[in-house]
Amino acid sequence: MLKGLLVGNVVVDRQLNFLVSVNVLVLVAAVAIAGTSFVNVYNLQSMAVQIPELGLLGIGVALAMIAGNGGIDLSGIAVANLSGIVAALLVPMWVSADDSPLIFAFVFGGVCLCIGIVCGLINGLLISRAGLTPIIATLGTSMAYSGISVVVSNGSGIRLGYIEPLDDFGHMAVLGVPICFALFIAIAAAIGVALRFTPFGVRLYLLGSNAKAARYAGFSQSGLQLVTYTISGILASIAGLIIAARISSVKWDYGTSYVLIAILIAVMAGVRPSGGYGRIVCVVLSTTALQMLSSMFNFLDISNFFRDFAWGLLLLAFLQISRIDLRSRLFGKS
């Protein structure tokens, strides 16, 4: 009778529409208030290079949330910093940056990824095998990874100096699009496709939707969790690589504010913290919206407090838009 209505799709489109609208609105408002310099190539590229590190951490948090079981990853920035620091300490011992900068850059990236895999695996094992709650496990590993970073770097930053391939990776644009931003979009697209169209992705959503039913249907909860948190670790290490490339420096306490921002990005993308739902395209749009708002406020000399206030307002507006109480109105259980 009444049961054939597309509640699910209605919600999804609303969230996507909201995020697209917000992006457009912020852009228009910024141009109107701050001037056309907001949309000149330099600023667009400048905003574009600031996005990947936040976006990758946001995707990591989103994946953890989708997997359910109170999933979250608080260790993202710690892994990012640790990757950069370990790479910055080890690679100069093997490769000379002056003689072979390209090899240096690749080895640097490789080391970062390895650290990301290891850290992600540790998170995954703690959660899937040792059965720790994700918030506690990743809080603990976050502090552990930061601790290692501090000790290994003696608490001070490590300067990389100017290494052309790395610097290009962090800043250069090809056909107007910064390389690191293009990489971010590629990664987001790959993960989005994997979530939607591969057995792994579908199983992850189902796991997050009902862990018990997933077990009865033969899914391996521990396997899925392990892969999820490892991917999150890898994404964090790529963020670390991008940070190192952008700043030419790595430090253990860089970006401590990113933990909460990543969570904000995921929640404002409509990812359900209880699991089973979330779209990567929305995570990307959420990140760009927050970045543009932030840059717009910087253009206007508006204090960062108002930026945080505006982000909060945006989140509330988003939650209002997605709030669905249609079930009782449409179905009225008979």
């Binding site: 600031q50 970006g255 204090s303």
Partner: peptide, 23 residues
């Protein structure tokens, strides 16, 4: 004018300056 990040984080200051350059 004066402007500053809401949290003591080098990353936030860096992003502020990036935006000023773009401005």
């Amino acid at each position: 004018s004066e402007i500053g990040p809401g949290k003591a984080d080098a990353a936030q200051q860096e992003r502020l300056i990036e935006d000023l350059i773009a401005r």
